[in-house]
Lab assay of single mutants.
Amino acid sequence: CHSECLGNCSQPDDPTKCVACRNFYLDGRCVETCPPPYYHFQDWRCVNFSFCQDLHHKCKNSRRQGCHQYVIHNNKCIPECPSGYTMNSSNLLCTPCLGPCPKVCHLLEGEKTIDSVTSAQELRGCTVINGSLIINIRGGNNLAAELEANLGLIEEISGYLKIRRSYALVSLSFFRKLRLIRGETLEIGNYSFYALDNQNLRQLWDWSKHNLTITQGKLFFHYNPKLCLSEIHKMEEVSGTKGRQERNDIALKTNGDQASCENELLKFSYIRTSFDKILLRWEPYWPPDFRDLLGFMLFYKEAPYQNVTEFDGQDACGSNSWTVVDIDPPLRSNDPKSQNHPGWLMRGLKPWTQYAIFVKTLVTFSDERRTYGAKSDIIYVQTDATNPSVPLDPISVSNSSSQIILKWKPPSDPNGNITHYLVFWERQAEDSELFELDYCLKGLKLPSRTWSPPFESEDSQKHNQSEYEDSAGECCSCPKTDSQILKELEESSFRKTFEDYLHNVVFVPRKT
């Protein structure tokens, strides 16, 4: 048989008469490798580009789960590009990614509803959504962080984005990388972005840091009482949809009607710091009717980097990364020049730590249904340095008659930039024990000054392991946590139920 035959053949030295091919099969003959313009397919066939392209389009058009959109890589027609490569849609070739590779997620039936953290986790790592997304989240724990972890990498949506009755959302900033909504599939009414009845939605994105392009379709905003109209108009300008909307697409009466839409800028007039305090004062603000001013709200939190936005980490279910302080308005003076500047002394802060701070007014709604208010920009203030805590785990070892090696770990709280350490030492008198000992005694162990690591005695271990207080009263049991108490109650309830079950099964009433 021919060298490319495997198993047997019907005619000697003829690659077209093989029972099976050793390498690849091409047009009725066995070959060692697939010549151009053919590609290896499933490690035994040679196919042309049209064959591989037909497989790709067949799966793409069917949208069946589990099928493969075949691509070409290293002269092979394979189910998908290997790690580190992405497909070129024009020629199906796998090309190296520039940075992290995109991950295209194809949605069944063309859309997916995100109504819980669990459903959001199914899209973790996706960068391109081939379909439409509907966000409908009523509640949950730590929602802002969970949504950002699972949806934060999405850069492109081919269909539309719909935010509907998501009472738990305060902001859409968890879509931190969303840059493009194509609108290839539109919501009824030709809408590519749809926001309806979101009672706590206050911000779409921080438009000073976020760009969003909507290729096709219109915007729809109705019944978002805490979303200011200025935020919607800003989205029109940034996304390129200005002029597409009709009169009733953006409701003037049901958007922002319960919001404090600040239209003035508060400026800080005085800032002073110490290692654990920050004193702030800002310019006074009074609405047209000074009785509408209820006070100020001061927001602050630790910020290692200057990239904080107002609604980071917030949701309507209680999660809030900001510390909020309510401040009463100052006494009002008739003389504008003698107006008191409101302020606040922030206490209990960490030394040498940068804080993000902003302040906003708290006002009631005027009778004319106009909203007044003022808010400052987010500023960054760093507390002063102070003395560091003591170095940890000092170790001293003498390696000769004239040297001592000293080692330690950095302090747990540096409280500033540590530039150097101060080492103090003092000579001590020799131990009298060394002169009084009889060095001729056998088995004498000389006193040693070398360091030995501390260890816990058996008594201390027994005390720590004991669940009861000892007789001397030195140790006591740790208080039980809520989960331990709940577990004990469940076990007790189970024992009672099981005992009742045994009584009912074992003891049967005697027939009379």
Rank of each mutant, 00 (worst) to 15 (best):
K103E: 08
K103T: 15
K103H: 08
V104S: 09
V104W: 14
V104L: 03
H106C: 03
H106D: 14
L107C: 03
L107A: 11
L108F: 13
E109G: 05
E109A: 14
G110N: 15
E111A: 15
E111S: 10
T113A: 11
T113F: 07
T113N: 08
I114T: 01
D115I: 07
D115K: 09
S116F: 03
T118W: 12
S119A: 04
A120F: 08
A120G: 08
Q121W: 15
E122L: 13
E122I: 05
L123P: 01
L123K: 01
R124H: 15
G125V: 13
C126E: 00
T127L: 09
V128T: 11
I129K: 01
I129L: 11
N130K: 09
G131L: 00
L133N: 00
L133F: 07
I134M: 06
I134D: 02
I135S: 01
I137N: 12
I137L: 08
I137S: 04
R138P: 04
R138K: 12
G139V: 03
G140I: 03
N141V: 12
N141Y: 13
N141D: 07
N141Q: 05
N142V: 06
A144C: 01
E146G: 06
E146D: 04
E146L: 03
L147T: 06
L147Q: 01
A149M: 10
N150D: 07
N150G: 08
G152H: 15
L153I: 13
I154C: 06
E155K: 14
E155I: 09
E155R: 14
E156Y: 04
E156T: 09
S158A: 15
G159R: 04
Y160S: 06
L161T: 03
K162G: 12
I163F: 14
I163R: 01
I163T: 09
S166E: 03
S166K: 00
S166T: 08
A168L: 02
S173V: 11
S173I: 11
F174E: 01
F174R: 02
F174K: 01
K177Q: 10
L180E: 14
L180R: 08
I181S: 01
R182F: 13
G183K: 01
T185S: 09
T185W: 05
T185P: 14
L186H: 14
L186N: 04
E187I: 07
I188R: 12
I188L: 11
N190R: 04
N190K: 06
S192C: 06
F193N: 00
Y194K: 11
A195H: 06
L196I: 13
D197I: 02
D197R: 05
N198C: 06
N198H: 01
Q203A: 14
Q203G: 08
Q203K: 12
L204Q: 03
L204K: 03
D206Q: 06
S208M: 10
H210A: 08
N211Q: 14
L212R: 00
T213Y: 04
T215W: 07
T215M: 13
Q216F: 13
G217Q: 12
G217T: 00
L219G: 07
F220W: 07
F221P: 00
H222V: 04
Y223P: 00
K226D: 04
L227E: 00
H233S: 07
K234H: 07
M235E: 02
M235A: 07
E236C: 07
E236F: 05
E237Q: 13
V238T: 05
G243R: 08
G243A: 09
R244Y: 05
Q245C: 12
E246G: 14
R247K: 10
R247H: 09
R247E: 02
N248F: 04
D249Y: 05
L252F: 06
K253L: 11
T254S: 06
N255L: 10
G256R: 05
D257Y: 12
D257W: 09
A259P: 10
A259L: 07
C261I: 02
E262V: 06
E262W: 04
N263Q: 10
E264K: 04
L265Y: 08
L265R: 13
L265P: 07
F268C: 11
F268L: 10
S269A: 06
S269P: 02
R272V: 15
T273Y: 13
T273K: 15
S274E: 10
F275N: 07
K277P: 00
I278G: 00
R281H: 04
W282K: 00
E283M: 09
E283L: 10
P287C: 06
P287D: 02
P288S: 07
P288K: 09
P288I: 13
D289P: 01
D292Q: 04
L294F: 09
L294K: 14
L294I: 10
M297V: 12
M297L: 12
M297T: 15
M297Q: 10
M297C: 11
L298H: 01
L298P: 00
L298F: 15
F299W: 15
F299E: 14
Y300T: 14
Y300P: 00
Y300E: 02
K301Q: 03
E302M: 10
A303R: 09
A303P: 02
P304K: 03
Y305L: 07
N307I: 12
V308N: 15
F311P: 04
F311L: 06
D312H: 10
D312R: 12
G313K: 08
A316P: 14
N320M: 09
N320D: 02
S321I: 07
S321K: 10
W322A: 03
W322V: 05
W322S: 01
T323W: 15
V324M: 10
I327L: 09
I327H: 14
D328A: 13
P329V: 07
P330T: 05
L331M: 07
S333N: 02
N334S: 12
N334M: 07
K337A: 10
K337R: 06
H341I: 12
P342E: 13
P342C: 15
G343C: 04
G343Q: 13
G343H: 13
W344T: 14
W344Y: 15
L345Y: 13
M346N: 04
M346W: 02
M346S: 09
M346Y: 03
G348S: 14
G348Y: 02
L349Q: 03
L349A: 13
K350M: 10
K350I: 07
P351H: 06
P351K: 05
W352E: 01
T353V: 10
T353P: 00
T353F: 13
Q354N: 08
Y355A: 01
Y355Q: 00
I357A: 04
F358I: 14
K360C: 12
T361L: 07
T361M: 05
L362V: 02
T364Q: 08
D367Q: 15
E368I: 12
R369Q: 14
T371F: 04
Y372L: 04
Y372D: 03
G373N: 08
G373F: 06
A374L: 05
A374R: 02
S376L: 01
I378Y: 09
I379M: 10
I379S: 08
V381R: 14
T383W: 00
D384C: 09
D384Q: 04
A385F: 11
N387M: 15
S389Q: 05
P391A: 15
D393L: 15
I395G: 15
I395L: 14
I395A: 04
V397G: 07
V397A: 02
N399G: 14
S400P: 08
S401Q: 13
S401I: 15
S402F: 07
Q403C: 04
Q403A: 15
Q403V: 09
Q403I: 11
I405R: 05
I405F: 15
I405L: 09
L406P: 02
L406G: 02
W408K: 00
